[in-house]
Design a binder for these strands. Structure first.
Lengths: 187, 187
DNA sequence: TTGTTAGCGAACACTTTGTTCTCTTTTATT
DNA sequence: AATAAAAGAGAACAAAGTGTTCGCTAACAA
């Protein structure tokens, strides 16, 4: 690949992320993005069709590998199958969010978080579902599986939001303990 | 009050709601709204400062009385204090959503649902919190109260979304049963 | 070195926004 | 019924943003 393309793409992503932490998505103009990224107008539209397209690309870039690595972890360790497993998938996920990708947490706490949340939630839902089908389950026949999957992934996302809004005072391990406390009783 | 004002306001709300069920909020123009509402441009801006302002007003109008009536119900019946209470607050809330205000469900399922969700979630959080302070609680000292409150209201909202996305095949009573099954074990 | 590709910058047609004006209609009040 | 006040219509407006096109330059891979 051409180095110029990668540089341009990275510059646009960086500028866009920086702007997102300042103001809401809808109030950011393409002009501001290209000014901050220091690229030409034509260049921007050569890379992305619209501002929405850029947002989508950013989401994919950010959540892509986080969820993928969680997927791997889930396939080896299972969801919460072995009791008191020191490293659960969710704990890993939280650590990943905290350490490797501070950008993600910034974007999840920004004014336009809804857009990112939708991606996060959808990805997570797939992860939980894949674990449910692997694990041949027995309890809770009275409660639909779809409801449980949604409840678990939904609760997790809500917890992350609560965590961010509270300025992340808890460690991933603590959060994981809380989460297990509200999730394991129903599994 | 002047009848004209009310009519205009109602017409704008109706037009806006109709448009929201067709396309996403960001793609709706003021021009489309005033065309659909059949009011003058000047009139629109006499009522609402911006499109965002209109959205906010619509949210307040829709969620205002639903949450208020749930608040009343919560103060008399409690949250889930008396076991097997046939009418819980959440059940009432679901029924309210289903019967009285089909508009709300339409808006929650539209492309711009995130905006409404934020309102819904915030309102609900206040409701649950008000119940927690009334109820002098004893269990779960290890889990922060804030986390539990967020978990309950967050899970409820996620459930409503799941319900809507699945075309509302369950009755409010069924949903309430599911919800109790995942919430009561941790109370 | 050379053909190819990416980027620049200016100009553009177009859409949307929010305001300002004048004029007409409806309303509440007496 | 008469009238002043308020609400709306409609056109016109500047300002800002969008997405595209053009010709030109610089960087790249071979």
């Amino acid at each position: 690949m051409d180095r110029r393309q990668q540089k341009t793409r990275a510059a646009i992503f960086a500028a866009f992320s920086a702007l997102l932490s300042e103001k809401s998505y809808s109030k950011i103009t393409v002009q501001e993005i290209i000014d901050a990224a220091d690229v030409g107008r034509t260049t921007f539209y050569a890379h992305f069709e619209t501002k929405d397209d850029l947002l989508k690309a950013l989401c994919e870039e950010l959540f892509g590998h986080v969820i993928n690595s969680a997927m791997d972890s889930a396939h080896t360790h299972g969801l919460y199958s072995d009791q008191d497993a020191p490293e659960s998938v969710f704990c890993h996920l939280l650590q990943h969010l905290q350490e490797n990708d501070k950008n993600i947490l910034a974007l999840l706490s920004c004014e336009s978080s809804e857009v990112f949340l939708r991606y996060f939630k959808d990805s997570l839902n797939g992860l939980v579902r894949s674990q449910f089908v692997n694990q041949n389950r027995r309890h809770n026949e009275k409660i639909p599986e779809g409801f449980l999957i949604n409840h678990i992934s939904g609760s997790f996302v809500e917890m992350v939001l609560w965590w961010i809004r509270g300025r992340r005072k808890q460690t991933p391990a603590e959060l994981d303990r809380y989460f297990r406390a509200v999730i394991e009783p129903i599994l």
